[in-house]
Design a protein around this nucleic acid. Structure first.
Lengths: 329, 329
DNA sequence: TTGTAGGCGTTATCAC
DNA sequence: GTGATAACGCCTACAA
C-alpha cells in the first residue's frame, strides 16, 4: 500500500493523500475524511525509508557503546532510547567493543544509515581514531559524547567530575580511619585515568608519595576482581581500603575479602564507581561513587534533541558526582 | 557525495559507479581502479536509505524487548545485535514495557521502518494484541519469538522447557532435604506461569495438595523480593525453601534471610531462574535455573537469518534448561 | 482545494 | 564494457 494505491482508490492524486497523511492544511474536509477512511481500511503505513530519502532526515540516531552488557551502560542506552523515542527518533544501538577499528567501523555504519545524530557512550570514544572518523564522514550531524569530550565543532560533551569524586572517596576512607589504600584501574579510558588522578591527589593529601602508591589495574570481571584482591592482600597485607574504578570488580573484592575472613568494612573498606545495581546485591552492600550516569544520559539526549531542532547549548557541561554510602565503608 | 557526483568526476555514468561500488563484474579494470580512487578520495558512503528503497530491503531488523535493563534481557539483545551485525543487519532495539498498547505501537514503528525481520524477546509478546498487530501489518516478514510462540505462518518460536526445569528445582530442593517450599511468581507472562506449573507438579509429586501450596507473586525488584520474603516467613515460619521465577527478587530474599539470621541454605534454601550475573554477586551465591537465554538468542538470530535468506526451519524448537547449583541450595 | 512534475540516491534492465 | 532510463515511495514547489 503506497500513497498511489490509496490515491487511485480515493479518486484523488497522490499529493492529496500525502497531505492527508501528514496532516497538512488546505484539504477539503470531505476529501480528508474519505482518504482517512481508506488509509485506515487498508492499514496504510507510510514508508519511513522513502520519506527519509526525500526529507534528508532518517529520524534515527546512533548510539555507540562499548558493551551494552555492562550494568551502567545498559541504563544509559535505555534512557536515551526512551527519551529519543518520545520525540519520534529510533535508536540504532551498536556495540563496538574497545578496539579502534570496530569503533570506526560502527561509525561508518551509522554514516551509511544516514542517522541524524549520534551519542557516544563513554570516554572510550574520546580518542583519535573516532575523532578522525567523525571528521571525515560525519562533520555535519550533531554528536554528543557522555563522560568525555572530542574537540570538533559538531561534538558536545557531558562530563562528570569523577576526578573530584574519587578524591572524595579517598577522603571518606580516611575519615573512616582507612588510610592505606589501593586503587584499581579498569580499562584505560580517559574517564578511568582521571579517576586514578583523583585517587593520587587524594592520597597525596594524606601524605603519600606519588611513587609509593598502590596502583593496580584489572579488567572489569568478577574473576579478575577476585584475583586482583588476592594479589593486593599478598603484596600489602596491611591494606585498609580498596577503591575500584567500577563496581563489578569491587563486588568481587568484597567476596574475596569475606572468603578470607577479613571483615568488610572494619578491616578493609571497599568503594566502587558507577553506583550500579550490583551495589545493592552484594553483601555487605557496596559504597559507590554515583557518577550520575542516568542524568548524563538524559542530558545527552536533551542536548542532541536541541541540536537536532536548532537550539543552542554549550560545548561541554559538567555534572557533579556524589558518594552513596552503603555498608562497605 | 552521490554516485552521480563521482560519475561526473570520473567521466563515466552513474551506473558504472554503482557497479564499482557493488563489486559487480563487467567493468574494465582500468575504469574500476579510477572510480575506486575517486570513491576513496571523496570518502563516498553509499546511502543505505536509498538503497533500501529500491532493493525493498532495509537490512534492519527490529528487536522488541520489554525492558532491556533486566540483566537477562540485555544479554539477549547483545548477542542478537552482534550476530545480526556480523551479517550486515542493523538492529532497532525498542523497549516496550509490558502494556499491550506500547507493544503494538512499537510494532507499528518497525512496520514504518520497513524492517526485514523481527525478534520478540520474551513470552510477554505471546499475546493477542501482538498477534493481531503482526497479522495486519507484518504478515510478510519473518518473526522469531524467544521463550514463547505465536500461531502465525510467519512466526517461529524458540522455547525452553522451564516447566520441567522448575519441577527439577523442586526435586533438587527435596533431595537436599527441603520440602516445605514456596514459589514466587514474577509478572504473569506465559513463561512465568509455566514455571509455576512446574512448581505445582513438582510439589504434587512430594505429596502436596494443589490448594495447600504456598504461591506468591512479586514484581521483579529488590524491594519487592525483600518484602515478599518477610511476608512468607511470617505466614509460614516453617518454610524450608524459596523458588523464585527470576533471579533479582531471589537475590533480595537471600539478603532478607541473612538479615533475619536465617542460614542459607541450611535453614532455608533459595533458587532463582535466569542464571544471571546477579547469582555470582550475592552472598551466598544463588543457585539458579539456567534457561539458556544466550543459546536462545543465538538460535533466534540464526533462525531469523535463515528465514531472511530463504532457508527453512521448524516452527518451534525447544532448548533444555539445567540447574546451576551454587551456594544457596 | 487539488493535481502535475521533479527530485531524493540507488539499483536493474535494456540497449548500444 | 558502458550508458540511458525507469523504477522504489514519498514530499513539495508550482500550476491550475
Amino acid at each position: 500500500m503506497t500513497i498511489y494505491d490509496i490515491a487511485k482508490l480515493a479518486g484523488v492524486s497522490a499529493s492529496t493523500v500525502s497531505r492527508v497523511v501528514n496532516n497538512k492544511p488546505g484539504i477539503k474536509e470531505e476529501t480528508r475524511r474519505q482518504v482517512l477512511a481508506l488509509l485506515e481500511q487498508h492499514d496504510y503505513s507510510p514508508n519511513e525509508t522513502a520519506r527519509g530519502l526525500v526529507m534528508k532526515a532518517s529520524r534515527m540516531i546512533g548510539i555507540l557503546i562499548a558493551d551494552i552488557r555492562y550494568a551502567h551502560h545498559v541504563d544509559i542506552a535505555y534512557y536515551i532510547e526512551e527519551e529519543m523515542g518520545k520525540h519520534g527518533y529510533c535508536s540504532l544501538i551498536l556495540n563496538t567493543g574497545l578496539t579502534d577499528d570496530k569503533k570506526v567501523q560502527a561509525i561508518k555504519v551509522l554514516e551509511q544509515r544516514r542517522v541524524d545524530g549520534i551519542i557516544l557512550v563513554g570516554s572510550t570514544f574520546q580518542c583519535e581514531a573516532v575523532k578522525k572518523a567523525l571528521e571525515t564522514g560525519l562533520s555535519k550531524i550533531p554528536v554528543v559524547i557522555t563522560n568525555g569530550y572530542v574537540e570538533l565543532p559538531n561534538v558536545k560533551g557531558v562530563l562528570v567530575d569523577e576526578r573530584d569524586g574519587v578524591e572524595n572517596c579517598v577522603k571518606l576512607m580516611a575519615e573512616r580511619g582507612h588510610k592505606k589504600l589501593a586503587f584499581i584501574l579498569p580499562n584505560q579510558t580517559p574517564s578511568n585515568l582521571s579517576k586514578q588522578k583523583g585517587f593520587i591527589s587524594g592520597m597525596m593529601d594524606l601524605g603519600w608519595n606519588r611513587e609509593d602508591m598502590w596502583l593496580y589495574d584489572c579488567p572489569t570481571t568478577l574473576e579478575d576482581g577476585y584475583r586482583i584482591t588476592e594479589q593486593i592482600l599478598e603484596e600489602h597485607p596491611d591494606v585498609e581500603g580498596l577503591i575500584f574504578g567500577e563496581d563489578l570488580s569491587a563486588v568481587s573484592a568484597i567476596r574475596a575479602l569475606t572468603d578470607k575472613r577479613i571483615k568488610v568494612p572494619k578491616q578493609v573498606a571497599v568503594i566502587g564507581v558507577d553506583n550500579s545495581k550490583y551495589c545493592d546485591i552484594c553483601y555487605p552492600k557496596l559504597t559507590s561513587l554515583n557518577n550520575k550516569l542516568v542524568e548524563m544520559s538524559l542530558e545527552a539526549a536533551r542536548i542532541l534533541l536541541d541540536s537536532l531542532e536548532g537550539r543552542e547549548n554549550p560545548d561541554k557541561i559538567m555534572l557533579f558526582s556524589n558518594i552513596v554510602e552503603r555498608e562497605s565503608t
